[in-house]
């Protein structure tokens, strides 16, 4: 554990809580991609299967359970409780275009050809692209509410901080995990365009982010 890793985890948690509270308080999930949230729930589910096989630390177990619970709560709010406000007509990203290559790649490129390892690899690859339906939705509608953009900012910040964590671990422990690093860099790159818009429009202008 180092400061980048801890800050990354906190940032990830903040992102998820911002989204959940936004939906809960406004009683609306307008502008939120349910597809991205289902993909994130799938990411946590397939990655944290090791909850049943190994014990790493209390911190690790608690965070995993919290992430799982919050991601399922978010999906529940979008598709059940506040489904009337869900903009399914704008959430039209074809997730099979993500799932098929990600499943294929996790079978081809993994650390061991065992179910748990393949599912772990699948979760790492899927996380890298899971935000695409949400970004696609914003591009399609041309705008995003400021709270949605704060959510995306913390979600992008989380992976960027993890990269700093991996650089730190490489130098201090001579340790690196190529699958995690390559996927993490790809994931962060997807946020770069958004980060630019966030700093130039949302933080200066306050209010909605509109695309040109």
């Amino acid at each position: 554990m180092n400061v980048f890793r801890l800050a990354g985890d906190v940032s990830h948690l903040v992102a998820i809580i911002i989204l959940l509270l936004k939906i809960w308080r406004s009683k609306s999930c307008a502008g939120i991609s349910g597809k991205s949230q289902v993909l994130f729930a799938l990411v946590f589910t397939t990655r944290y299967l090791d909850l049943f096989t190994v014990f790493i630390s209390v911190y690790n177990t608690v965070m995993k359970v919290v992430f799982l619970a919050l991601s399922y709560a978010t999906v529940y709010l979008i598709y059940m409780r506040f489904r009337n406000s869900y903009n399914s007509e704008n959430d039209t990203f074809r997730v099979e275009f993500l799932l098929v290559p990600v499943i294929g790649l996790s079978f081809l490129e993994n650390y061991a050809f065992t179910p748990l390892e393949i599912l772990w690899t699948f979760s790492i690859f899927l996380e890298a692209v899971a935000i695409m339906p949400q970004l696609f939705m914003i591009t399609k509608t041309g705008e995003a509410e400021s709270i949605t953009t704060h959510y995306l900012f913390f979600l992008g910040l989380y992976r960027a901080l993890y990269i700093a964590n991996w650089v730190w671990r490489y130098h201090t422990e001579s340790f690196y995990d190529l699958i995690a690093i390559v996927s993490g860099v790809v994931q962060t790159i997807f946020f770069c365009d958004f980060f630019y818009l966030y700093f130039t429009r949302v933080l200066r202008g306050r209010g909605k982010m509109t695309l040109p």
Binding site: R5, D50, V54, N60, K64, Y111, W120, E173, F175, D177
Partner: peptide, 10 residues
């Protein structure tokens, strides 16, 4: 052979 050291990450 790779060990499982990133698996302690979330």
């Amino acid at each position: 052979k790779k060990d499982n050291k990133t698996k302690d990450e979330l």
